[in-house]
Nucleic acid binder design. Structure first.
Length: 612
DNA sequence: GAGTTTGAAACT
DNA sequence: CAGTTTCAAACTC
């Protein structure tokens, strides 16, 4: 209710008729304060002019409308179905013009969401899971929805279906609305521009840096005093960004490394990993807006808790914390460049889009660029050696095949017998093969015999070959050929050179992938160790391991499935949900490695591709 | 759901 | 620019 004012003015301040209050009380249509009225005409012009040059220091560096992707969708109010369709294109257009605000006063306020609150909420509502959702409605009572207090207005959209009173933020009151926009722009040319500085590079960078911290920076900064910047009162917090040097907050706890902040995210949420992963996924996909993180598990703390440091703005702790964040950002990159960053702060440099959460890969410290290079080098070497070895073996096999062809007739019956017997022991053989190049040792001529349809004693069709993308298939044929079921002299003669090459590649690939798998397994183990460590640290109430604690050394199933088309999949399914996501690209053309985490809660899906 | 708290916006 | 008031959302009960 209108405790404070209602239709009454503050008793003591007679002359201080707030324009909006007066207007509200009297219901005078869109009348502006004297100042605004006086300049409305010229102000407009001036405002327009200003718009073209209103670049703020923080935003100048973004000629490419960084936030555009995020905001564009916001401009189209989902719930506006019944409303003027003609409006939306315009808004969209204006959105495109974002940096230079609408040149004409009549131009709808099209502007971008200004209030971080509005922005973040919108984001939440619209992009949470990639599916637009109904936007929250405002509840304005005294602003006629023509001031930035109103989320809708601040977002540059018409009110529609809101719970507001005496709303003028609609088509019917376009004139008043336009005036309000002008007035608002006059006061602050950036009023409708995003408050959170975003990446000048766009969302793609969000992906690229998903493994590290993703930062945004409030252009003006917050001025919180009592919330510790850990409640939604704080614009930074609401936008899920850390406070920056732009902020003038007191007792800020919204900085990287803040215990209170961590408690909020990890605290009583046993399943905090889910949130981490959500954030990671959000960052990766870039699908979530500034608050797409949803509602972080807010620990409803008591007031007393918020006064821990008692220090004022930007206390040393704060600065240290923020600096830590910077360090972490740069961690995955040669760290030499960061330590000397004067006043390095979150959001400095290439501030990324309104991201809400910062996630850092558990492997960030483990995997270094040079490691990847080395790995690729090793794999390349293996590949080369494998090729060499295969060539030799093939050569030997062909020789042997010639020799055997003479005696094959004699032994065919015997071999058949033998093969049936061996079938019983084939499993162990298969297992051996799956673990490495063992198969080739046990069946030197595998590459040759593989290409034959053993059961029918004739060459396999290309389609059949293509189907042989399963390791076990290869194992089977390998084993079968080993048993001499095939008349190599006949089969080999029918093989095309291309098929041979394909098989050779398969073997080669299998060797490389096996090595790569081993490497990944080690990597996973390291990640698990780290995760376990962090999991323990994340427990607010348990700083040390007790006898009841369980340190999860999880097991996972890993399978490797080489295929003939040059693509192999290594699927790792950890029991936990550690968000491992690392993109690996090799300097070598023939080893293009991808490690991704496509599923939300499940696990890691490691994919290895080789461009043949 | 009502009342309180909070901080941005608006204003002086 | 600083101080105050207004406002609506966030929060608490």
């Amino acid at each position: 209710m209108e405790q404070r004012e209602g239709g009454e003015f503050p008793p003591k301040i007679s002359a201080q008729l707030d324009a909006s209050t007066a207007e509200t009380a009297t219901d005078i249509p869109a009348r502006k304060p004297a100042r605004q009225l006086d300049f409305s005409g010229g102000a407009l012009t001036s405002a327009s002019v200003v718009m073209t040059e209103h670049h703020q220091p923080q935003q100048i560096s973004k000629p490419s409308h960084p936030s555009q992707p995020l905001q564009q969708p916001q401009l189209v109010k989902p719930r506006q179905l019944p409303k003027p369709p003609q409006l939306q294109p315009e808004m969209l257009f204006i959105a495109m013009q974002q940096p230079p605000p609408p040149p004409h006063p009549s131009a709808r306020p099209v502007v971008k969401p200004e209030s971080p609150r509005a922005r973040s909420r919108q984001n939440v509502n619209e992009v949470k899971d990639g599916t637009p959702k109904k936007q929250k409605q405002c509840n304005c009572k005294h602003s006629r929805c023509l001031k930035l207090y109103c989320e809708c207005f601040a977002s540059g959209i018409y009110c529609d279906g809101c719970n507001c009173v005496n709303c003028h933020n609609n088509v019917e009151n376009e004139a008043a609305r336009s005036e309000a926009v002008e007035a608002t722009l006059e006061r602050n040319p950036n009023a409708f521009r995003p408050k959170i500085a975003s990446s000048p590079h766009g969302t793609q960078d969000i992906r690229e840096e998903a493994g590290d911290l993703i930062l945004g920076k409030h252009n003006k900064g917050c001025h919180c005093k009592k919330s510790g910047c850990l409640k939604k009162y704080c614009e930074c917090f609401q936008a899920n960004i850390l406070c920056s040097d732009n902020c003038k907050c007191m007792d800020c706890k919204n900085y990287e490394g803040s215990e209170e902040r961590q408690a909020l995210f990890h605290g009583d949420h046993a399943n905090n990993m889910v949130y981490i992963q959500q954030a990671a996924n959000a960052a990766i996909t870039g699908a979530i807006g500034s608050s797409g993180y949803g509602s972080p598990p807010l620990n409803k703390k008591r007031k007393g808790q918020e006064l821990f440091y008692g220090s004022t703005v930007k206390d040393p702790v704060h600065r240290v914390g923020q600096f830590q964040q910077v360090n972490q950002i740069k961690d995955s990159v040669p760290s030499s460049s960061l330590s000397s960053l004067p006043g390095a702060r979150p959001g400095n440099g290439s501030a990324l889009g309104p991201s809400k959460f910062t996630y850092r890969s558990l492997l960030a410290d483990i995997i270094q660029p040079q490691d990847l290079k080395e790995l690729c080098s090793v794999l390349a070497v293996y590949s080369g050696e494998a090729a060499k070895m295969l060539a030799e073996e093939r050569h030997t096999a062909e020789k042997r095949a010639e020799d055997c062809s003479e005696s094959s007739l004699h032994s065919s019956t015997q071999d058949t017998h033998q093969s049936q017997k061996d079938h019983g022991t084939m499993k162990p053989l298969t297992d051996d093969v799956s673990s490495g190049n063992q198969a080739m040792k046990t069946s030197p001529d595998a590459s040759v015999s593989d290409e034959a349809d053993v059961s029918k004693g004739r060459p396999m069709s290309p389609s059949t070959l293509a189907l042989m993308c399963d390791e076990q298939d290869m194992m089977f044929t390998t084993a079968a050929s080993l048993n001499g079921l095939v008349d190599h002299s006949i089969v080999s003669s029918q093989l095309s050179q291309g098929q041979r090459l394909t098989e050779a590649y398969s073997e080669q690939e299998r060797i490389v992938l096996t090595k790569f798998r081993d490497c990944l397994n080690r990597l996973i183990t390291l990640g698990e160790i780290k995760e376990t460590k962090y999991s323990l640290l994340a427990r607010p109430d348990e700083t040390e391991v007790t006898s009841n604690d369980t340190i999860n050394v999880r097991t996972e199933s890993r399978t490797i499935q080489p295929t003939n088309n040059g693509v192999a999949k290594i699927t790792v399914m950890p029991l936990s949900t550690s968000p491992m996501t690392t993109a690996v690209s090799s300097p070598y053309n023939d080893t293009n490695l991808k490690i991704s985490s496509p599923s939300e809660n499940v696990g890691v899906n490691l994919q290895t591709e080789r461009e043949v």
